[in-house]
Amino acid sequence: MSGRRTGQVLLMLAGLIAWAVQFTVIYGVTSTLCGRGWADATLFGFGIVPATIVSATLITFAATAVAVIWSIKSHRQNAKRPAATTDGFMSHVAILINGLSLVVILWHGISALILPACA
C-alpha cells in the first residue's frame, strides 16, 4: 500500500478513532475514579469526572472537525481529476464517516455528562 493510500484510509477512519479515544478516556477515568471512591474529587474547583468528559469530548470533537475539513478538501481536489474514481469514493466516504463521528462524539459526551457517573 502506498503512503498516499495509507493516508486516505487513516483519514476515513479518523472520526472513528477519535470516538474510540473519547470512549476510552471517559470510561477509563470515570470507572477508575468510581472504583477508588474518588468520584467527587475536584481539581481547581471543577469535578474531575465532568471535566474529563467535557475536555475529552471537546478535544476529540475538534480533531474530528479537522478531519471533516480535510476530507472535504481532498474531495474537492479529487473532483478536479476526472479519472480517479477510487480516490473520489474514498474521500466521499471519509466526509460521511467523519461527519457522523462528530454527531456520535457529541451524543456520547452528552449522555456521559447527564447520567450519574458511578451508577
Binding site: V103, L106, W107, I110, S111, I114, L115, P116
Partner: peptide
C-alpha cells in the same frame, strides 16, 4: 433525524436520571 434524536436523547436520559 439528527436534530430530533439530539433532542430526545438528553430528554430521555434526564427522565432516567
Amino acid at each position: 433525524p439528527i436534530i430530533t434524536l439530539s433532542a430526545l436523547l438528553p430528554y430521555g436520559l434526564i427522565v432516567m436520571r
